[in-house]
Amino acid sequence: MADPLRNQSGIPAARAASKPIFDDRSVDELLAGFPADRSLPEAGNPRLNRAAESIGGALGTTVGRVRNGLTLVKGNLVETSNQITEQISDKASAIKDKVESQAHDLNITARAKAAEFGDVVQGTSEQLAGIAERQWLELRQNARQRLIMARNRAAVLKQDHPLELIAAFAGAAFVIGFAFRVWRSDHD
């Protein structure tokens, strides 16, 4: 067992507190407990030597273990970082595959919708073309019927009222001739 520390100054504890903390001795001397001109006390106490050896041995063993522990920690850190890197790489690869699969599915769906839209547009355009053709035929048929009706009326007028028809053409020719004459005199 270690020797207890003793107050070697001979001053009672109450008086020692009133003494200034620093006197002529150096800080090293105060911290070490022996004069600064010597690095270690003399090897005069075998108990103190054994205690110092056991403390030094324990401290050396502890430093060795800490170094080994740091080496293990560094090794574990490298191994763990490699595992984490591999896991991240695997997750990124899985996400990439999933995104590519979803993009492929989206591409197929978009193509199917585009084809469906094209079919709808083609069907609608064919319907509109059919409607336009029917309306054109109806318009053409209506125009033909009106022309036939006008010819029939002209034939009836020609047979029933021939003189009135000649007078109407003569009057129309006179008005057209007069209009041409006025127009020609303005532009000459």
Rank of each mutant, 00 (worst) to 15 (best):
A2D: 09
D3Y: 08
P4L: 11
L5T: 09
R6N: 06
R6F: 09
R6G: 02
N7Q: 13
Q8D: 11
S9T: 15
A13V: 13
A14K: 14
S18H: 11
D23Y: 10
D23A: 15
R25V: 09
D28E: 11
A32M: 08
G33Q: 05
G33R: 04
S39C: 10
P41R: 14
E42M: 10
P46M: 11
L48R: 12
N49R: 11
A52W: 03
A52T: 07
E53V: 09
E53W: 07
E53S: 01
S54Y: 06
I55N: 05
I55W: 09
I55H: 09
L59D: 06
V63E: 09
R65Q: 12
G69Y: 03
G69A: 11
G69C: 08
T71Y: 01
N76M: 05
N76G: 11
L77Y: 10
V78G: 00
N82F: 06
Q83W: 03
Q83Y: 02
E86H: 05
Q87F: 07
Q87M: 09
D90P: 05
D90T: 14
S93W: 10
A94L: 11
I95R: 05
I95Y: 06
D97V: 04
E100A: 14
E100D: 15
S101T: 12
D105T: 12
L106V: 08
T109G: 02
A110N: 08
A112H: 05
G118M: 04
V120Y: 09
V120F: 04
T124Y: 06
T124V: 08
E126C: 04
A129S: 14
A132R: 06
Q135F: 00
L137K: 07
R146E: 04
M149S: 05
A150D: 02
A150K: 02
A154I: 05
L157H: 00
L157G: 00
D160Y: 04
H161L: 04
L163D: 12
L163E: 12
E164N: 07
E164A: 15
A167V: 06
A167K: 02
G171Q: 09
A172S: 09
A173C: 05
I176A: 09
I176D: 07
I176Y: 03
F180N: 07
W183M: 01
R184L: 06
D188W: 03
